[in-house]
Amino acid sequence: MTKGPLKHFQDVDDARRTLESAGYVCTPDIATVVFLAAAGDKPILVEGPAGVGKTELAKAMATGLGYELIRLQCYEGLDEAKALYEWEYAKQLLYMQMVRENVNDLLAGADSLADAVDLIAAQADVFFSDRFLLPRPLLQAILSPTPVVLLVDEVDKSDPEFEAFLLELLSDFQVTIPELGTRRAVGVPLVVLTSNAFRDLSDALKRRCLHLYIDYPEADVEREIVRRQVPGLSEALARQMTSAMARIRRLELKKRPSIAETLDWARALINLQIESLSPEAVLATLSVICKYREDSDLVRKDLNGVVNL
């Protein structure tokens, strides 16, 4: 491949800076994959435990580059009408009612029934035009004149049929609407797919995408995230918090706390005006960290270990 002008980012470092300008602290891994995806027009398939910032990555890409973010949330039963486009039947009907009188004027010149039908046929396209087309996220992303980031969230929750359809779209970036013809993408959108490994995705889809696995962050990366997102937090407390969090994650929990929980916890500690982490402080804010009673019990049992006393 010859080195043409690169789209979106200059190099890996540029990608990292852009993401960081949007408040997203990223590892070199993430920056590299984002850069490659942008340079090669490939979708990114992001996997990882819940709450490590999979969706956030797409948002940061959009914010950092100044692009619009178009989001499609997948769920069981999602179909083309909700993902791609739909005709606005109600509007068509309304227009039909309103123009009913004009039809007589139109047909004034017709001599025979055949002529009248021809005259009407010539006007039929009016009702199947962009005016009555309701674009859904996927079509919006394709037709957008400015570059966009398309986030297909939790793609593993959708049905296999939809996945196959998505595959077609992602490989050609064009959509055929029977009444209007084929619409080709103006600019290829940056596509981010996220998955929680709810079910195995098809090999074909995986082959098309660059795979990125985001794990729970290292303690110092997490500290950096907390520092950026929660400004009032003292350096010492952030250090205590993130190492306590790392220890909590090592327990056999039903649901391990993720970055989202760490941020909530930091905000809770600030609101309670706690300066230094003590077992009592953890106990008071336990409901922020653990979402199951069994998990709370586990942490409570090991409070001193968690705070490292």
Partner: peptide, 25 residues
């Protein structure tokens, strides 16, 4: 992709290979 990144940086090199060849956890 390798032609686009700095292959002397091992982190980037490994990431390119990993993201293209390993597609699940």
């Amino acid at each position: 992709h390798l032609s686009l990144v700095d292959v002397l940086d091992e982190g980037q090199f490994a990431t390119v290979l990993r993201s293209s060849f390993a597609k699940s956890y």
